[in-house]
């Protein structure tokens, strides 16, 4: 009897759970689907108000317009370079710092951690002009390197990596230390392989952040040859939004631009996601 009740409870639990998730998911799909539908609408149909779940008049003209106006490859390449190199460097440096700060016996650890925490509270507007001046003095303005360098490390990622390293069981580290491994070896051979989910998280967040960045690029770059995809698309889209421009950008073109911009993220995501799901699956369902 008792067992049956438990079983019934489990079924109910699973059903309610599933329903809950479905409701949430549907609210998340709407914007994406709306964007897709509008991007495939004709110019006029896309201007009509309301949410579109299906193109009112199917047309490729949004994509065609973007394609014909924007030479998309160069900005795409720039975005790829900045995002990939920037993310790799970011993950490497932040995990190094995170590892060091995860060592309880490091003298000055608290101080350094506090200083890193403070950096996360500084509004960018406060230091925007000074950072610009510094970049100028370093001679980095107008280079892709400036974009890679900006945000090479962040307090957020360091803190996160530090926490992942802290959750590695002590016994693992102990045995390696007894073998006489130094910190670099411990970091590289033991901690990194054990923190794939953490690395994936940091990499994902950083990649998305860099891919979507506009302000940094606009600030540091003048030469259109170094524009990233977001900025190139934005220059196309925002012109139509400005009061005094006679150029109108219809919503299908805007949405087509947005689809092009997020497509790479949607493609990259499943590869990163593997690291979360696999672990959870192993963790909870292994019997």
């Amino acid at each position: 009897m008792n067992r049956r009740a438990t079983r019934l409870g489990n079924v109910l639990f699973i059903t309610v759970n599933l329903l809950f998730l479905l409701v949430i998911c549907s609210s998340m799909i709407i914007p994406l689907w709306n964007a897709v539908a509008v991007s495939f609408s004709s110019n006029l149909a896309s201007m009509q108000p309301g949410i579109q779940m299906w193109p009112r008049q199917f047309s490729f003209s949004g994509y065609k317009t973007i394609w014909s106006i924007l030479a998309i490859w160069k900005p795409f390449e720039n975005s790829a370079i900045v995002s990939v190199l920037g993310t790799l460097l970011h993950v490497f440096l932040c995990s190094l710092a995170g590892y060091a700060l995860a060592q309880f016996h490091l003298p000055g650890r608290r101080w350094i951690t506090s200083l890193i925490l403070i950096t996360m509270m500084i509004p960018f507007q406060a230091i925007m002009v000074p950072v610009y001046v510094t970049m100028q003095q370093l001679g980095l303005l107008n280079t892709l390197f400036a974009l890679i360098l900006a945000g090479t490390v962040s307090g957020f990622s360091i803190l996160l990596m530090r926490n992942f390293f802290l959750s590695i069981p002590g016994e693992v580290l102990e045995s390696a230390t007894i073998d006489g491994a130094g910190h670099f070896r411990l970091y590289w051979n033991i901690c990194i392989p054990l923190s794939k989910a953490g690395l994936a998280t940091v990499a994902l967040f950083e990649f998305v952040g860099r891919w979507n960045d506009i302000l940094t690029t606009v600030l540091f770059i003048n030469d259109p040859n170094n524009y990233t995809l977001q900025v190139a698309l934005n220059s196309l889209i925002s012109q139509g939004g400005s009061m005094s421009s006679g150029y109108i950008v219809t919503d299908n073109v805007k949405m087509a631009g947005i689809m092009i911009a997020i497509l790479p993220l949607l493609l990259v995501y499943p590869f990163v996601q593997k690291y979360f799901v696999k672990g959870i699956f192993v963790g909870s369902a292994k019997e």
Binding site: L93, C94, A100, V153, H183, Y187
Partner: peptide, 15 residues
């Protein structure tokens, strides 16, 4: 500890 500080150098320089 010096190796640990070494690991922190890029971060500190950046900040």
């Amino acid at each position: 500890a010096w190796t640990l500080y070494l690991m922190l150098v890029p971060t500190i320089v950046y900040f």
